[in-house]
Design a protein around this nucleic acid. Structure first.
Lengths: 168, 168
DNA sequence: GGCGGCGGGTTCCCTGAGGGAACTTAACAC
DNA sequence: GTGTTAAGTTCCCTCAGGGAACCCGCCGCC
């Protein structure tokens, strides 16, 4: 299959997707970020093949998203924890969860609530502008080439194409 | 392969991942949301196999994320556009892009900038609490079972496990 | 001190999804 | 009637994922 390598494309979405665009990675990160860090727990909880789980974990450790730590010496036991790089995937999970809540929830509502400890309320994650705090949508934003947007052969920028929408 | 079906798991992340947890889907949505909607344009832009592109588009249309519209009659030409359900995937893309910018960008910076038309500035997407506007992180939130969190066999809730972190 | 169990993987085989490229159909355009 | 563009479809091949069995170090215990 030789999955098309996306990491070298000049698009942060592609680069992130190269790691994250796998059905299991998001769920592994969900579990690890919520405290499930042991191999067997992950395997049982996710229903993932142990082989694939081992491969995913190795990849995530290699990428610096997880770290493997020995939490007891005798007998030697290890678990996986999120690094800072891994913890910052949390907003991606929240965005996915929010979308799933809105569009995939059954009649009885969302399967889980997010409780914001700081303000003490159940909350809904909103993707907002860092400056003005307004929610960002397709319609009130546009993408422009950035400093790293070298447009060589085979590279792509998250296109500044919004203005030139396809013909009506 | 019979990819493990995740849509029936009681977790919105799993449900969203069932659709979105594929390397191509995120990139297709990126393109469609930025105005690339024609089959050939997508195929060239992404470098995706045409067979897989056709399958992905069919799936996305079936799921109600994209719609296929005829934009000219003679000769008949069609393109794909995001539905409301599809447009709401934008925050997920922004979160992915932000993460990629922070952790995968080269020395020359992010490949693209997000410009917020409403406030007129280049912005950084922040995942914030809908109530107080504070950024949400792993540390200031916890997950609790929601109304749809029926914990039958084979179902899972994004666990309320944060408090009971694995042993140190 | 041998036996069972647990945690954390690794190995095996099998299926089927993805890659690549060629082929197809339909509607013009010259 | 030859060429071009758009939008798929078909073919073959390889390799990643699923499933289940196997393995190894280190216990606890009787």
């Amino acid at each position: 299959m030789t999955r098309t390598p996306l990491a070298d494309v000049a698009c942060s979405i592609a680069r992130a997707t190269d790691l994250f665009g796998d059905a299991w990675t998001a769920l592994i990160m969900r579990d690890v970020l919520t405290g499930v860090g042991r191999f067997d727990d992950l395997a049982h909880d996710l229903g993932i093949s142990r082989k694939v789980l081992a491969a995913r974990l190795a990849r995530l450790v290699e990428e610096g998203v997880l770290s493997k730590e020995r939490y007891q010496e005798r007998p030697p036991r290890e678990h996986y924890r999120a690094t800072e790089k891994g913890e910052e995937l949390y907003p991606v999970l929240l965005a996915l969860m929010r979308w799933g809540d809105r569009w995939c929830a059954g009649t009885d509502g969302a399967p889980a609530r997010v409780h914001h400890l700081t303000c003490g309320r159940d909350t809904t994650p909103v993707t907002a502008c860092a400056h003005c705090g307004d929610p960002l949508t397709v319609h009130n934003t546009t993408q422009l080439p950035g400093p790293g947007g070298h447009t060589g052969p085979g590279t792509r920028v998250l296109g500044p194409l919004l203005a030139s929408r396809a013909p009506e």
